[in-house]
């Protein structure tokens, strides 16, 4: 009964919305708004073809490569900057500026320096996604519990063991906040790097459909983008719940007391 109730809550509103959409497109043949059935049909036609291999997979690959690189660089640099006081003071204003540069403006810059290539798109994604991870890692490392830090020091836990067993675990909730932000940034940058300068990829395909007034195809591309976004978000939540189980448990205990 309880499960049924939660399923009803989960699908109730989406079903109502789809029915409204279906009813609104029923009688009229509006050129710009396809009916749900047409959209599903076009979606299958357009994306379950070789377009998936030639445009969608490379796009997703570039995005994941960029985000993975950004996370690695961000955590490594963040650990170094967070643990070294003078380095933090030295770099803070510069980082503050670099983070504030809206990442899309890097696309024309990178296009000049590197030409239009896969590596240019990946570098753009890395450059945009690295700041949330880096700054959150710095914050997380700085907020390490001082008792834990002192006791690990008095047990002579230093070097890599300190990073592995003290710094990364205590900074990980904060790091995850940064990773979540950089995931959505990475998706945005992937799409617009392909929209601005490219001859392949998901972003390019969507713009191409729009320019040739292939409206249902355009909508299906947008739907695919949405699905990728939702998929990424669910993947992140899954990983976060696994990796930070101890943290959520601790929070629950704290709230209960």
């Amino acid at each position: 009964m309880k499960i049924l109730k939660s399923i009803a809550y989960a699908v109730g509103l989406p079903i109502i919305l789809i029915i409204i959409w279906w009813a609104a497109t029923l009688g009229t043949a509006n050129f710009y708004a396809p009916s749900p059935a047409l959209l599903v049909e076009t979606f299958a036609q357009v994306w379950f073809s070789e377009l998936f291999l030639t445009d969608v997979l490379p796009s997703i690959g570039r995005m994941l490569a960029g985000i993975a690189l950004a996370i690695m660089i961000g955590i490594t640099a963040g650990l170094a900057i967070g643990t070294t006081r003078w380095l933090r003071m030295l770099l803070e204003p510069t980082l503050e500026f670099l983070r504030a540069v809206p990442p899309p403006v890097l696309i024309p810059v990178m296009m000049l320096i590197m030409g239009i290539s896969d590596s240019m798109k990946i570098v753009t994604i890395v450059f945009g996604c690295v700041w949330p991870v880096l700054l959150n890692t710095v914050e997380g490392v700085r907020a390490v519990d001082s008792v834990l830090s002192d006791s690990s020091r008095s047990y002579a836990i230093g070097g890599l063991a300190r990073v592995r067993h003290l710094l990364i675990p205590s900074a990980s909730p904060q790091i995850m906040v940064g990773v979540r932000q950089s995931l959505s940034l990475g998706l945005i940058l992937m799409v617009i790097s392909e929209m601005f300068a490219s001859s392949s990829g998901l972003g390019f395909s969507i713009i191409k459909f729009q320019r040739s007034f292939a409206i249902p195809e355009m909508w299906s591309g947008i739907a695919l983008l949405g699905l990728i976004g939702v998929g990424l978000s669910f993947l992140f939540q899954f990983v976060e719940r696994k990796a930070l189980r101890w943290y959520h448990g601790q929070k629950e205990v704290e709230h209960a007391s």
Partner: peptide, 13 residues
């Protein structure tokens, strides 16, 4: 999570 840049074509139209 739907990226808002996906709305660009709709906004243009």
């Amino acid at each position: 999570p739907i990226p808002s840049v996906g709305l660009i074509p709709i906004a243009v139209i």
